[in-house]
Amino acid sequence: MLIPATTAELVQAAQNGDERAVEILLRDFYPSLFNLALRLLAFNRAAAEDVAQETCIHIVKALVRYRGEASFKTWALRIAMNCARDYHRTNKKYALQEPLNENLSSAQNPAGEDLVFQRQIWREISVLPDKYREVCILLWAEGYTQAEAARILDCAEKTIEWRVQEIKKRLQKRLKGGRS
């Protein structure tokens, strides 16, 4: 029987010039890259697709320099993160004023109340400073662990912990304020 090659094996093959391995790698990770970009870019689908493509290109360019020090996935996601930041910088018009649109929860239609809450949360997150917003998306929306988030954001785990506390504080404050 055939078993899938490990990511490490694929990466090595890709570094040795195996085009097929590159394709498999990219296909494996494209959904994660796209989804992260989508959330970082406030559910702007077209922008996220652009960023995902840009990320793929950056990954193959940087592949030679990848030394296996981080897991390939977090390494790739860090590149996606940077691409999304760049995109922000160059396309101010996609700023995150109104992150909510039809894209949001198009798949599972939650009950009205939930939907309202979801929108509210995303709106709150979108106004957080970037460093908090990113942590929020990585941990809560994409479900990465703190350790992974630390590697993706290239910072200490402690920093992430601290930011999480800060986010919670801010959100609590705002949500309460919103309600009253």
Partner: peptide
């Protein structure tokens, strides 16, 4: 957390192909 996790947005396979094609050319 639940609210944030809830949205599943499927990517467009055509766009995936396009991205990977572009990347492979660069590669």
């Amino acid at each position: 957390k639940a609210a944030l996790r809830q949205q599943t947005v499927n990517h467009d396979p055509a766009k995936e192909d396009q991205a990977i094609k572009a990347a492979l050319m660069v590669y």
